[in-house]
Nucleic acid binder design. Sequence first.
DNA 1: TATTGACGTGCAACCGGTTGCATGACATGT
DNA 2: ACATGTCATGCAACCGGTTGCACGTCAATA
Lengths: 332, 332
Amino acid sequence: MTGRKDGVTISDVAAAAGVARSSVSRAFTRPDMLSPETVARIKEAAERLGYVPNHTARALSTGRHGNVALIVPDVANPFFPPLIRAAQSEAERFDFCVFLGNTDEDPRQEDKLLGRFAGQVEGVVLVSSRLSDAQIRAHAAMRPLVLVNRDVEGIPRILIDSAPGVSEAVRHLAEIGHRKIVYVSGPPTSWSNKQRRAAVRNSAAKLGIEVETVAAPVPSYEAGKEAVGAILKTGATAAVAFDDLTAQGILAGLIERGIAIPKDFSVVGCDDVLGAATYPSLTTVSNRSVEAGTVALSLLMQMLQTGIAHDVRHMLGTHLVIRNTTTGFVKK
Amino acid sequence: MTGRKDGVTISDVAAAAGVARSSVSRAFTRPDMLSPETVARIKEAAERLGYVPNHTARALSTGRHGNVALIVPDVANPFFPPLIRAAQSEAERFDFCVFLGNTDEDPRQEDKLLGRFAGQVEGVVLVSSRLSDAQIRAHAAMRPLVLVNRDVEGIPRILIDSAPGVSEAVRHLAEIGHRKIVYVSGPPTSWSNKQRRAAVRNSAAKLGIEVETVAAPVPSYEAGKEAVGAILKTGATAAVAFDDLTAQGILAGLIERGIAIPKDFSVVGCDDVLGAATYPSLTTVSNRSVEAGTVALSLLMQMLQTGIAHDVRHMLGTHLVIRNTTTGFVKK
DNA sequence: TATTGACGTGCAACCGGTTGCATGACATGT
DNA sequence: ACATGTCATGCAACCGGTTGCACGTCAATA
């Protein structure tokens, strides 16, 4: 097992081709500066020797390493993987690599990762950041930074606007006969949670139906299931949950208590991460995480290329996806 | 918007502390070589100036950049995120960063990524690789490489051994009265699929019960649902699915046809990625993806530190998790 | 024919650390 | 008092590229 280092450097190629090291460099980065024959000779030699440019060395002298960081609260939350994937393939279009960071929903961990990545990446995408506005601003001052689902003025941000979808959901519930509904809230520091709660309240007020809020501090199946007691106690006949996982837990909790869905109770999720895979299939608000990932990354690339950061605030709309946890409700 | 470069280098610190650059370097990498007072003075200066060592520069001279790559077929498949997360936090223990690669189940993409990462990472973890043995060997010859769920002799590999869990499942099904079962298979090139199919057949043969195989070429909810027709046609009374997603689809398909679960039909999944979140909650084979991620990474770290690659073949056992899609079957 | 400019190439400094070796100060042993 | 050894520190080369500038050649222009 000999092979560790390839060992073929620019000097080797230069020697083989009978030119200076700088010419080899230029043959790859600015071939137009050299005569076509020289370029050909160098490339031939490089090919023959199996030369591969060393990213690290290049990065040291140019300051551009072709890497960006993507930091999310929890890779295992089904909301994020499609976003990650989209961001990654967009990065690849620009020949960039992605560092993935997972913060476990912990701001300290987030800060630590940001520091660890610094100097290895040219820019950062922060998804659903739990940092304070001040911390975010501080990082943004050091390097190009794009936010997803976090609204800090002056910093480019992509926001998935669930308000239209949520409003539509409330209207839908009112139409099929509900007079009192519950919003089952998510993480208190989440921008999306605040936005959804506000959207539920506003639409309900407009439609003249009652709303109460029940807390599910963590967005998970278990938390949803546990919230069912509190939900039923309100006397509401429908629930809008912070996300699909919570909704799925609520579904399970209701079924366990013998409550028929959608006949006796309606449930609406958010983010559409489960597709039609619940039973009954879940009515939910559509999700734009793929676009969010793509846009965030292309925005970052643009910032890197131009060197300027516009104060972009990119909103992505949503809509209601009606399935079988709402239609079929029978008003008493 | 001035701040781009921190600009604080080892030279700045050296000047501030009144020592040579090499002493600053040593203050961080080999403090034992310097007098405690000098170290203190340098660290103080570094702190005051906000000095952060430049990874790229360090990498250039040492050849160690503190990065590893983790390549998976599909981040969005719920099997992988926990593994990714575990690997990432293990990497962090060693102060390493993780590059994440997504191949979209495409061997060409996998090869491309591997090339793109080369020179930026010290080692690679390949999860459920779709490359040929020869390609894997070629890459392994160039740099430290660890495989997960792929069995290539001579290359360190972590294998999640679903055989024990699957065998237990078949025994369980036999015990509650099934005489004929179906294995719903996954991707034909998958090592796990081959292993699971074999385990089902072997145990069934031992217990004297009948097995048929139905193909669901892609592991997904939809594919599972579509397979239901074929499953019922076999006359079997239970299905063991390649994974939980497929099982969930089967569940939905059966319920849609009015077949009561578990009374009339039993379903077993694999990988336990859905928790108890299906209805009825799914009996499945446990998953060791977290350990797989952790072990793969620590193995890689060990290889990097010692420089030697033992021919490790690390098996992680599994067991059956009994929930409500099996118990309650009523034999006719 | 002398002048000018364009063009292709090489030289050498630089990016920000690391590290082998040399040096000088001081302490120890005899 | 002198030889020897230890220890802390500095010098300078090096990792593998990039890039501003200088130089020489050759053709076009005056």
